[in-house]
C-alpha cells in the first residue's frame, strides 16, 4: 500500500536524508493518507456486507408479488379491498357423501362416499363483493407448520364457496373443505382470494381468517368429527 521508504545508501546509518530536520518528513505527511485509505477500505467492506445482507435477508422476488393480506378471526366480518369474508363455523368429518353422478362405484342410496387418510375439515364461510361480482379461487388452509392445503377437489364443487358468484350487497354462503393430517389443524388459518386469471396478479387482495383452534380445541373438533358429511343444498 505505502511506498517503502528505504534509507538512501549514501545517507547516514539512521537513514536521515538530505531533507533537513526542519522540513516535514515524508512519513509524517503520509499519515492522513493512510487513515483515509483505511477508512475507504472499511467503508467498502461495510457496503459489501450491507449488500450481501440485503440480498440474504431483505425482500426477495417472491415478496414483491406477494398478495396484500387482511386478517381476522372467526365470526368477524373481514373487509378486504375487493371483497369481504367471514367464517361462521368449523367442523370435521371422516368422509364425504357426494351426490352420485351415476355409473360405477356407487352405494345404493345414490351417494358416492369419499374417505381420507387424514381428516376432512369443513369451514363454513361467507363472502360479499365490494363492487364487482366475482368468484373466489380455491381456498387454502394454512397450517402452523407453514404447509398450505388447497381445498380438496374430491368434494363436489357446486356445494362449495368457489362455485357461486359473490355479489355486492349480500353475503354468499358456502363451505370450503380441506383434507389434512389431523395434527395440522391446531393453529390453522383459511386464506380466501378472488379467482386468478391467466396472468398472475401481483399484490392482489386476500383475506386470512384464523380458525382460532388451539391444541385442545383442535382435539375436541377431531373427536367430534362426523362419520359422514353430506353437503347441504342437495335435493
Amino acid at each position: 500500500m505505502s511506498t517503502p521508504v528505504r534509507p538512501h545508501p549514501e545517507t547516514g546509518p539512521r537513514g536521515e536524508s538530505r531533507e533537513g530536520p526542519g522540513t516535514p518528513g515524508r512519513r509524517d505527511g503520509e499519515r492522513p493518507g493512510r487513515w483515509r485509505a483505511a477508512g475507504a477500505v472499511l467503508t467498502g467492506i461495510a457496503l459489501a456486507v450491507a449488500a450481501v445482507g440485503l440480498h440474504a435477508f431483505g425482500a426477495d422476488v417472491s415478496d414483491h408479488d406477494a398478495p396484500l393480506t387482511w386478517t381476522g378471526s372467526v365470526g368477524e366480518n373481514v373487509t378486504g379491498s375487493r371483497f369481504s369474508a367471514r367464517v361462521k363455523a368449523v367442523h370435521a368429518a371422516r368422509s364425504i357423501a357426494n351426490a352420485s353422478p351415476g355409473g360405477s362405484g356407487n352405494s345404493p342410496d345414490g351417494q358416492k362416499r369419499v374417505t381420507t387418510k387424514g381428516i376432512f375439515v369443513i369451514v363454513e364461510v361467507g363472502a360479499t363483493a365490494t363492487r364487482e361480482p366475482q368468484r373466489l379461487g380455491a381456498p387454502v388452509l394454512l397450517a402452523d407448520s407453514g404447509r398450505g392445503y388447497e381445498a380438496t377437489d374430491r368434494m363436489e364443487e357446486t356445494s362449495t364457496i368457489v362455485y357461486p358468484f359473490v355479489q355486492p350487497g349480500w353475503w354468499t354462503e358456502g363451505v370450503a373443505v380441506f383434507e389434512i393430517p389431523p395434527r395440522e389443524l391446531a393453529g390453522s388459518r383459511i386464506v380466501l382470494a378472488p379467482q386468478g386469471g391467466l396472468v398472475v396478479e401481483p399484490n392482489g387482495p386476500e383475506i386470512e381468517i384464523d380458525l382460532g383452534l388451539d391444541e385442545e380445541a383442535a382435539k375436541r373438533l377431531i373427536a367430534a368429527a362426523k362419520d359422514v358429511y353430506t353437503p347441504a343444498g342437495r335435493g
Binding site: K112, K117, R147, G148, Y149, R154, E179, P181
Partner: peptide
C-alpha cells in the same frame, strides 16, 4: 387420479 378415479391432488404430508 386417486383410486376410483377421484381426486387429482397431492396434499402435503398426507399419503395418497
Amino acid at each position: 387420479s386417486g383410486p376410483g378415479g377421484e381426486g387429482g391432488q397431492l396434499h402435503p404430508a398426507l399419503p395418497a
